[in-house]
Amino acid sequence: MYPFTYSRATDVADAVRDKAGHGASAYLGGGTNLIDLMKYNVEQPAHLVNVAKLPLDKIEDLPDGGLRLGATATNADTAWNEQVKARYPMLNQAILAGASPQLRNAATNAGNLMQRTRCYYFYDIETPCNKREPGSGCSAIGGYNRIHAILGASEACIATHPSDMCVALAALAPTVRVSGPNGERSIAFEDFHRLPGDQPQYDNILAEGELITSLDLPEKGFAKNFTYLKLRDRHSYAFALVSVAVGLELEGNTITDARLALGGVAHKPWRDKSAEQLLKGQPATAETFGRVAAHVVANAVGQGSNDFKIELARRAIVRALQQATEGRQRATDAFLNSNP
């Protein structure tokens, strides 16, 4: 870990100003990822601006019927918020599927968007990694890549975004509000994270110095027919191999609206709008689900140790669509509810 200076911002403008006044600096939220990365020397900011205590921790109704999630509200407070539980239960389930209670108590909503990949090689500064050190090469390609991407990867990087919360957010499509040296702007969630391309060092489209202030959820929450299905190597405190967020609206047995997003498969939370279109107007049947699932993974590419994810994702999508149709969320995997 490298030495760094530290300050605590009093308001958003102060935070933005403070960060701009330092060279290699970073905003510090809950610190559950950034501090780890600093200990590994992966991140080496010379200055930290603590934004965790900014007055951005409210969860409040929006005039358009949506819900604003403050940037510094913790993941735990967000998951257990009454409005979130009632109107966006998919988000509640996705958050609770991630990390551990201790981490969720510390981690912030904005920080959840900002967390970096769990790629083994990104974490180990002794191995080449284009995301950590552009141009050094990708060790995961041809290496051990069980947790790596099958969709949207590039020759430069096959890392995945590790968040669960963001998969549900991708399905719910909020707006990300940010504030920076050039003022405020809003970013559609689907545009926030990016694919690696030839610049895998950038996880998202935030400009230098921009700070997330809130996530504004639209009114539609898919509270009746939804699922967040997470498949992983142990039943808690493990990142998703594949996860699926599904929200459906049904009239009788016909799907009138659908959202479908995957986690653990790409450099960003992977929302598939074409799959959503394929679902619309179709009967909610195994045949439909199988066809849509096949469509989602049609262009998937395995890297060796993650080849299984293609088939796993296909089956997980089918299961998630079934569960959402039946209106029975089974917590975070197929078993948790069946084993009291």
Binding site: Y120, E126, T127, Y144, I147, R234, H235, Y237, A238, F239
Partner: peptide, 30 residues
């Protein structure tokens, strides 16, 4: 039986999952 293994990347001759997040041992839920 179900989860524990230190993975060696033979290209580097180096273990890759050398932390508690990626070296899986059971938690209470298991």
């Amino acid at each position: 039986a179900l989860m524990e293994e230190t993975i060696m990347d033979h290209k580097f001759g180096r273990y890759v999952n050398h932390n508690y997040a990626e070296y899986h041992i059971p938690v209470n839920a298991d």
